[in-house]
Design a protein around this nucleic acid. Structure first.
Lengths: 291, 291
DNA sequence: GATAATTATGTAATTAAATTTCATTCTTTT
DNA sequence: AAAAGAATGAAATTTAATTACATAATTATC
């Protein structure tokens, strides 16, 4: 359970499951972890408005032997400057503040994913994708771009790949699934109707249904293999969907996994692809900064 | 004097100047700093064969307020988990190693971008995009997905947006640019021929040409506004392009910037968009983990 | 919807750890 | 070789963290 590295990510992912005072402590720590490493247990308790033993218990629940030990963990997972609480962009933000906020949120989401990597699910998905005769990547809205990216990457293998966003196409193709087809659905919420329906349909055909989504969602229920990711809630904040970034990196993982599974053959094939791209590039010129 | 960060380097350089017992302490700490962060003052003293006050004085001489503070300094100069060097996936990697490598590379790229944010370029790009009557996002290969994502995001404003990957379309549309059009080109290398040609073409029409690319590239030279990003070179490692992730986050920044520039009107519009998405979702169900 | 069981939290007592004081022992200088 | 100065350790003190216990809040059960 206690992963030792990156207590901050650990706290972040535990946040929704925490009790009232534990959450108060967690928030104080996440807001200014650097300060927390220098504070005494009394000071932190006072900051959070809880008692000292509560802080102590909080530390122990995270796997530390006590408060001083917790501070060491904290110090070790600290990256200078980064904001660990999800930050919301508001009307007061300027070009000096919102870019950093967005970056920090993204970096956080990735660090969280790093802590709770669903390795077994990835492995199983890689197996299915490797064995597939035909692969469909389906996602709508923001996830359509992720699906497109996946298609583009898997296109480099000899497998036949397709992406669609049109509801009718989705439905038709899902209904026509066959034994060695893989349907890969991408949805942050797992509650987008078109996607859920298509997944349910595909599951009845004998094809393999993989979903990258919230594990507690209708889409997950309809799927054979679920890549569940722990992503800080920002469904409502449609401006910057950190989830899609995490999804893209997971796609990278799947492509990498399949390539490795193909062994020499796969790696060689990629080398050839790389070669073929070269003529489309202009020669590299001397570095010369432009303002 | 006291450098706060990197106590280890500090101790190392001070080593020859230290007294007998201080050196004994220093050696124990340097031999296994990780263990030192977990040891009590009594334990460390015993390890070094000195008294507890000696250890305490050692810490103070280094600038810490005392032993516990010193341990925090030590912990902070011990970088946990995250690998800061770009890591290459090789044939020996397994599902337990390559996902983390990919994530670490991505996180690193984002942290790098965070350090060297081209705020002025972003601001200027936001200005152009805000004022534009029509926007084209052009990218091919991996960057096509980024362009698509940008289109999807900017579509939410009233401005007309389009993306194309077909070389002929690119050329035609670029040639037909008008004064209040914005052509936004995305290319990691800035050397993709189709893109460079299209940019040069567009620049002759009086339209504004923005490029998100390597600042020392033909594409940058052809553009009016360059969003130059410092991304670790991994062009050759086509499996996982970290650049596209950074590009996507920059797109988020631009959308955010334009939204903020639009003020109340923009924010309200987004609120309406959010509302309109709700009916496409199925109701949220009780959390129920699926293995 | 009330009651029991469980879990969460705080107060006070305790224990552990780190720090200071002061006496002693080494160095270094003349 | 003697005296000053710095370094070190033993013991006392202080500070901080932890445990034990009582109370409050929550959740489950009937």
């Amino acid at each position: 359970m206690s992963n030792e590295s990156n207590v901050l990510a650990q706290i972040q992912s535990a946040l929704p499951r925490l009790s009232k005072s534990d959450r108060k402590i967690a928030e104080v720590v996440l807001t200014d972890p650097e300060a927390a490493t220098r504070a005494s247990i009394a000071h932190l308790a006072q900051q959070a408005g809880v008692s000292e033993p509560s802080v102590n218990r909080f530390c122990k629940r995270l796997g530390a032997t006590g408060y001083p030990d917790f501070k060491i963990w904290l110090a070790r997972s600290l990256v200078s400057g980064l904001q660990y609480m999800s930050q919301v962009v508001d009307a007061e933000d300027t070009v000096d503040t919102y870019p950093t906020k967005l970056l920090d949120n993204t970096i956080n989401a990735l660090m969280l994913a790093r802590e709770n990597l669903p390795a077994p699910a990835i492995e199983s998905a890689v197996g299915h994708l490797h064995a597939a005769r035909r692969i469909y990547f389906f996602g709508v809205g923001t996830s359509a771009a992720v699906a497109r990216d996946a298609e583009h990457k898997f296109f480099r293998f000899q497998t036949s790949v397709a992406t669609h966003t049109d509801p009718l196409m989705l439905r038709m193709l899902s209904a026509g699934g066959q034994a060695d087809d893989v349907f890969f659905f991408i949805s942050h919420t797992g509650r987008t109707q078109v996607i859920v329906e298509a997944a349910e349909l595909a599951a009845t055909t004998g094809a393999t249904v993989i979903a990258m989504t919230d594990p507690a969602s209708p889409l997950a229920d309809a799927s054979h293999c679920v890549i569940g990711l722990d992503i800080p809630e920002n469904t409502e904040d449609y401006l910057a969907m950190t989830s899609r970034i995490v999804h893209l990196v997971v796609i990278d993982m799947l492509v990498t996994g399949v390539t490795l599974k193909r062994g020499a053959e796969g790696i060689e094939h990629l080398a050839r692809m790389k070669e073929s791209l070269l003529p489309t590039r202009l020669p590299k010129q001397k570095k010369r900064r432009k303002t």
